[in-house]
């Protein structure tokens, strides 16, 4: 199968959906000639023109309000917020408006919009450009939260997100845009709420998503050489969450490690613990272990930055500590 970059897969998804449905359009900061901060939209302005690739001022509230209003009136906008950190500027539009309009209006109105953004650390851009804020959105009823780790997943899930009738928060990771992976030429979509067992194993289940999935896979690979068999499960979508797949894996391995780059306190990882506690406590041979980001802002210095988020070694250590 051909291999393409994560960002190329994003572009392909947009092109296919824009060609399929004239109501799909893109808006956001620097997405015109510049092609987006990570160049995922390179060439799309030339291809579709400024009405479908709307290059906006730095106005996060108006960008997301722009998406909501267009979605309410028959369009399917894909709004880009350059960094998940900048969503803080528009939380009213996300939390009070997009997430609740369908609910509040008794299902009369729908908001079929995608908020594409990216988060995570690893590039030395410090505390206001490196956060992992998925738990904020995960916490809000009415939002779907998607965090794809591979080119295959990002393409299939973005297509599904664009076709969804409700708001989808689509969070990419800034360190993986250039990663290559197999993506078929033929069209496909990936349903929400279906986890992917990225590696089968029998000793421990590692639950990980986004860039941390790649670290978990690397850890599992190395542990395999030492004779430890890890099952690595990628939820791909945090909301809806494939609880069944998670529980089934726990029933098989009887041990669970949850890996996340986000600050541990109040995290999605903590909620996974609670879910497993509720639904599979009797199958656990050891307490569930979290391997998460420190309860800290992300520092600039590379050595300090690395210390704030889980490493392959941290994951391996956690696995070994459990056996």
């Amino acid at each position: 199968m051909r291999e393409i970059e994560y960002r190329e897969a994003i572009k392909e998804a947009c092109i296919e959906e824009m060609d399929r449905n004239p109501k799909v359009f893109l808006l956001g900061e620097d997405i015109g000639v510049y092609g987006g901060a990570f160049r995922a939209y390179k060439g799309l302005l030339e291809k579709y023109g400024p009405e479908r690739v709307v290059n906006t001022p730095i106005s996060e509230q108006a960008i997301l309000g722009g998406a909501i209003g267009a979605a309410l009136t028959g369009y399917r906008p894909v709004a880009e917020i350059m960094f998940v950190d900048f969503c803080t500027l528009a939380m009213d539009q996300i939390v009070n408006q997009a997430a609740k309009i369908n609910f509040m209006t008794g299902d009369a109105l729908h908001v079929p919009m995608v908020l594409r953004t990216q988060g995570g650390s690893g590039t030395g851009i410090a505390a206001q450009h490196s956060q992992s804020l998925e738990s904020w959105f995960y916490h809000i009823p009415g939002l779907k939260v998607v965090m794809p780790a591979t080119p295959y997943d990002v393409k299939g899930l973005l297509k599904t997100a664009i076709r969804d009738n409700d708001p989808v928060i689509f969070i990419e990771h800034k360190t993986i845009y250039l990663n290559k992976g197999p993506v078929p030429e033929e069209e496909y979509t990936i349903p929400f709420g279906v986890a992917d067992i990225k590696r089968e194993g029998s000793d421990v289940t590692i639950f990980a998503y986004s860039a941390m999935l790649l670290k978990a896979l690397a850890a599992a690979e190395e542990l395999a050489r030492e004779g430890i068999s890890c099952e690595v499960i990628d939820p791909r979508t945090l909301v809806p969450l494939d609880t069944d797949a998670l529980i089934n894996s726990v029933k098989k391995t009887n041990k669970l490690i949850v890996v996340s780059e986000a600050v541990e306190r109040g995290s999605v990882a903590s909620d996974i613990l609670a879910i497993v506690n509720d639904k599979a406590f009797d199958f656990l041979d050891a307490p569930v272990k979290r391997v998460c980001g420190l309860n800290s802002a992300i520092p600039y210095n590379s050595k300090l930055e690395k210390a704030c988020v889980p490493t392959k070694e941290n994951i391996m250590q956690a696995v070994k500590g459990m056996l």
């Binding site: 808006l27 709307v54 997301l64 309000g65 722009g66 209003g69 009136t73 009213d92 209006t105």
Partner: peptide, 21 residues
């Protein structure tokens, strides 16, 4: 397109409806 419980909440949404118009 809806009343709004947030003061100013409809202002950004009008941008989107304007875009679609």
């Amino acid at each position: 397109l809806g009343a709004n419980g947030i003061v100013g909440g409809g202002l950004p949404i009008s941008v989107g409806a304007g875009l679609s118009c």
